Computed example of a mutant assay.
Amino acid sequence: MIAAHPDDAEFSFGATVARLVDEGARVTYVVVTDGAQGGEDPDEPAEELVATRYAEQREAARVLGVADVAFLGFPDGSLADTPELRLALTREIRRHRPDLVLTHQPLRSLQFPIGASHPDHLAVGQAALNAVYPYARNPRAFPELLAEGLPAHRVAEVWVPGHEHTDLLIDVGRTAERKITAILAHRSQFRGSRDPLTDVQWVIDRMRGNGTALGREYAEAYKRIITDAAAAAGPTPPTRPRDGEVPVVSP
């Protein structure tokens, strides 16, 4: 899972991550920025806020059963799809060698609330897809990674939030509550709130709406991108639809 900020993973993918873990997958987080702009107090020292947000992200990851959290520490609010970011994400993909990458939608949504299209989200979505293809799989790309003992790796597929392009719904009826618990672990993001649970009601409503489309209580919605057809057609990992099936997952 490659996300721009601490808490993005939980908001976008939390219930799916919990289901993947429950079904035996090993999930790793890669958080690109330091989260230093995620606060309302302009006088709070950046290093204190960053430390708080890193701790909250680790706590949220534990709620979902995530195996490891890597923080790349890029400055919050100034990401771009640069060679430096592509190299950093390619390094993480080759290090962890995932079958599936979850990351941000690289296209601005004109339908969903504007926060879904935060510039850092768009930059990470674009850079992550570029890292998946062509850089992670090309042994001639970033030769310094070979010197680090990180050979080329082919990711089978990528899931990004569906927004206007949904073609995959994941039944998360058993893990939706853990998603909300994990979101609320980011306590610094709810300072001054009278009722944080009310503040995230929209998350519950969105999962419920997706669930209605699936005929289940709750679901999360994605655009599924096949990046290696041969790998995607191989042994079926948790929650992956098999070829020939309707691309909607349910128990």
Results as ranks from 00 to 15, higher is better:
residue 82 T to N: 00
residue 22 D to V: 00
residue 203 V to M: 14
residue 241 P to H: 04
residue 28 T to P: 00
residue 44 E to F: 02
residue 47 E to M: 00
residue 152 A to H: 08
residue 102 L to D: 09
residue 183 I to N: 07
residue 6 P to Q: 09
residue 30 V to P: 04
residue 31 V to H: 01
residue 145 L to G: 10
residue 163 H to V: 05
residue 159 W to T: 02
residue 39 G to K: 05
residue 60 A to W: 01
residue 69 V to T: 13
residue 181 T to I: 09
residue 144 E to V: 14
residue 152 A to K: 06
residue 69 V to Y: 02
residue 216 R to L: 01
residue 54 Y to L: 13
residue 195 D to Y: 03
residue 11 F to R: 02
residue 174 R to V: 00
residue 90 T to D: 12
residue 115 G to V: 11
residue 92 E to I: 00
residue 18 A to Y: 01
residue 184 L to V: 11
residue 207 M to D: 15
residue 4 A to M: 08
residue 150 L to S: 05
residue 251 P to T: 07
residue 134 P to K: 07
residue 120 D to V: 09
residue 20 L to N: 06
residue 25 A to Q: 01
residue 58 R to E: 15
residue 165 H to F: 10
residue 183 I to D: 08
residue 184 L to S: 12
residue 225 I to E: 07
residue 140 R to D: 12
residue 167 D to N: 15
residue 12 S to Y: 03
residue 35 G to D: 05
residue 228 D to C: 03
residue 226 I to M: 02
residue 40 E to I: 08
residue 190 F to I: 10
residue 101 V to F: 01
residue 37 Q to L: 15
residue 7 D to I: 06
residue 73 G to I: 00
residue 150 L to N: 03
residue 177 E to Q: 15
residue 40 E to D: 14
residue 170 I to H: 12
residue 43 D to A: 15
residue 93 I to Q: 04
residue 23 E to L: 11
residue 244 G to Y: 02
residue 87 L to E: 12
residue 176 A to H: 13
residue 233 A to H: 08
residue 145 L to N: 11
residue 239 T to S: 10
residue 209 G to Y: 02
residue 249 V to M: 10
residue 25 A to Y: 00
residue 44 E to T: 14
residue 175 T to S: 13
residue 30 V to W: 03
residue 56 E to P: 03
residue 162 G to Q: 04
residue 144 E to Y: 02
residue 122 L to R: 11
residue 109 S to H: 07
residue 118 H to K: 05
residue 21 V to D: 00
residue 196 P to K: 08
residue 101 V to N: 09
residue 42 P to V: 07
residue 114 I to F: 11
residue 143 P to T: 13
residue 55 A to G: 13
residue 141 A to T: 03
residue 239 T to L: 15
residue 147 A to W: 02
residue 208 R to N: 09
residue 118 H to F: 03
residue 209 G to Q: 11
residue 125 G to S: 08
residue 48 E to Y: 01
residue 44 E to Q: 13
residue 67 A to M: 00
residue 251 P to K: 04
